[in-house]
Amino acid sequence: MRKHRFFCLIFNFVKKLIFIVLAISVLGLIAYKIKPVKRVVSAMVIEPKLVNEDSLSIKTRVNVPEGYKRVAYPKGSFQEYLRNYKLKPFGSKIINYDSSEYFWQHGHIGILEIPVPVNGLQQCADALIRIRSEYLWNNNRKDKIGFNFTSGHYCSWEQYAKGFRPKIDGNKVTFHKIAQENYSKESFYRYLNLIYTYSGTLSLYHELPRIEDAKNLKIGDMLIKGGSPGHIVMICDEAINADGEKLYLLFQGNTPAQSVHLVKNLEETSISPWYTLKKDAVIPVSNYTFDSAKFVRFK
């Protein structure tokens, strides 16, 4: 009887000991699981939300990071025009010129309200040429619309509107009046199609003034790789902090021709979609990497 009682006491003690060990283990596991969750929740609360999904312009779609403010530009300037460019609703997809969806939809946070012609001509440089030309058209500065062909020959809108057309023989280009004068908007877009055909990143790289000091960059300037193929993106917003450090937003077209889109910063996600820009730096932009950054500016 005593032996039986003794074993019962031992058995109850072991049961309690096992229960205590299990309880401590479970509590430790819960604490371990909760800790990273707390970290994630804290990060979500502390990190500012830089993208406003319900906004329909570049300026209202993207907030500036803490400690920064937008650089002021005059009303009516090209810089303010770009900053306030209209966007499609958040989540809109990049669409190719043939109405198909682009294969990768994870590098943008906005689609600009720019039609993509079905002719496939409005590629990366062409999209920026269009944006610049439409600004000049809408602000009664049509006499400033003109671009070099890759051959180096200048073709202006005024010349085209008067009926002059290029005759191209290899690298030799001459202009001849073979059409009636036509200053309509339809004629303007036919002119742009001509520019898209004979101009590109290479012509812009050689034609446009270069920016040697990245500290002088402003909205409307472009990061460019001239070539065939090359690539080009445009600065569409600018912010600065008390130390004079600047951040920029970028948009791009692409080859094949597709929706012009406001790109994410996939490298510096803490400030995305803002970018830091430096001359000769390696700068990945969505689906392209500039291995030695160069900058140009429209005249």
Rank of each mutant, 00 (worst) to 15 (best):
I232D: 04
W157C: 04
T174S: 09
Q252T: 11
A161T: 04
F251S: 02
S187F: 00
V260D: 11
T201K: 07
M222H: 11
S228R: 02
V173S: 05
L194S: 14
Y191E: 02
I240L: 14
L192Y: 10
S199L: 04
Y198T: 13
T255Y: 14
N265W: 10
Y196V: 03
L223W: 10
E245R: 13
E267T: 15
L247M: 07
A257C: 14
S259Q: 05
Y154V: 00
M222Y: 11
E238N: 14
P229E: 03
N171H: 08
D221I: 14
T197L: 05
I224P: 02
S259N: 09
Y248T: 11
K162T: 14
G253M: 13
K167S: 13
Q159W: 02
I211A: 05
G200L: 09
H153D: 12
Y160T: 01
Q159Y: 01
I240M: 12
F251K: 04
N265F: 04
N254W: 15
Y248Q: 06
D237K: 11
S203H: 01
A214Q: 04
T174F: 00
S199E: 03
V233D: 08
G244C: 00
Y160G: 00
H176M: 09
Y183K: 06
I232T: 03
I178P: 05
N182A: 03
G253T: 13
N193V: 13
K218P: 07
S184V: 05
E186Y: 00
H231K: 03
I224Y: 00
G170R: 12
S151G: 00
I195G: 06
L192A: 12
Y248A: 09
Y191A: 01
S187A: 15
E238I: 06
F175D: 00
I195H: 09
S184P: 06
I232R: 05
V173N: 00
S156H: 09
Y189I: 12
M222S: 13
G244P: 01
E207V: 10
K167E: 12
A214V: 02
G220P: 13
L249T: 01
K167F: 10
G152S: 13
A257Q: 01
I224Q: 02
G200Y: 07
E181R: 02
G230I: 08
L192Q: 12
I235S: 03
N171M: 05
N254G: 15
Q159M: 08
T197E: 06
G163N: 07
H261R: 13
D243W: 07
V263Y: 05
D213Q: 08
G220Y: 09
A239M: 00
H206I: 05
Y191C: 02
T174P: 01
I235W: 00
S203W: 01
T255G: 06
N265G: 10
S184W: 01
E268V: 07
E212C: 05
G226K: 11
V173A: 03
Q180Y: 00
N193A: 14
M222C: 14
M234E: 15
G227E: 12
G163H: 02
V173M: 08
H261F: 10
